[in-house]
Design a protein around this nucleic acid. Sequence first.
DNA 1: CTAAGGCTTACCATCGTGGGAAGGTCAACA
DNA 2: TGTTGACCTTCCCACGATGGTAAGCCTTAG
Lengths: 152, 152
Amino acid sequence: MSRFAHKPVLELADAHAQGLHSIGEAAKITGVSAKMIRHYETLGLVKPTDRTYANYRVYQTRDIHLLRFIKSGRDLGFSMKQIAILASLWQDSQRSSAEVKKLALEHISDMDERIKSLQQMRQALSDLAAQCHGDNRPDCPILDGLACTHKH
Amino acid sequence: MSRFAHKPVLELADAHAQGLHSIGEAAKITGVSAKMIRHYETLGLVKPTDRTYANYRVYQTRDIHLLRFIKSGRDLGFSMKQIAILASLWQDSQRSSAEVKKLALEHISDMDERIKSLQQMRQALSDLAAQCHGDNRPDCPILDGLACTHKH
DNA sequence: CTAAGGCTTACCATCGTGGGAAGGTCAACA
DNA sequence: TGTTGACCTTCCCACGATGGTAAGCCTTAG
């Protein structure tokens, strides 16, 4: 019953024949887990174009590109909210690159803050650790530092 | 009915008279929210010594110290699991400072990894942003970079 | 036909924190 | 005395991104 059905793809075999992808294939291709692909769908980010008779999700090349776009965004540390905005800009031919750059710079400064905060924690702890003998005795400047309401 | 009841503190007034603290006071003193103080109790970290007749939590100086210890640990980026261990070491006179130092060094190297990862993301994004004009035109190297499965 | 493995939905867990509801208690003031 | 407002109690829900698991259907290879 596959025949030459054209618009609504009806069977998995048809889908494959047309270069379309099941969720598992999309996952392998893009590096986004099937779990996450479904999750992004609930967020309204990636809607599969069709379903097979058996209710399987069917993805087109366009969807694959979008998933890769999302993955790259995550790899760069953008939140899903930011990625949703970026994806809509990506698909908007009327966008201005200034909008995108603004988001990017904001995210960079977020990361700068997080880096700075981590470095400060790291330094403070490392200072304490440097004073600690690390032997069998119980005396421990690290614990003392934690107990003494360090700086504030 | 307050009188001179000694052991189980019965009323809030008694508690105050004995230098004990309600959860709200403990929160103000330690900088840990009442919400979190209750949460730490469910984690088995800080059990109030007593309750008043009205079932209010009553904290002793020892508990205040412990809350401050926890807060310092959080400020240094330790997880609650790590803090639970550190707190038990803190209260264990038989501890060896080596145990504490080991935890600290592990945490430092965790932070180092996170810092490095953030710095890499920051650098990659910043490289893309540097190529972006940020004007009214839609051409955008940032979006191009996200779309083109950047590096992997 | 059967067994393996992919797909579906739906629910729960993480981790630390905050918010809110519904109800009891305390302190101060009229 | 009564009221009011601030505080306390427990219980449940939310975030963000991801993983896990279970029960049940579908597909495909043998």
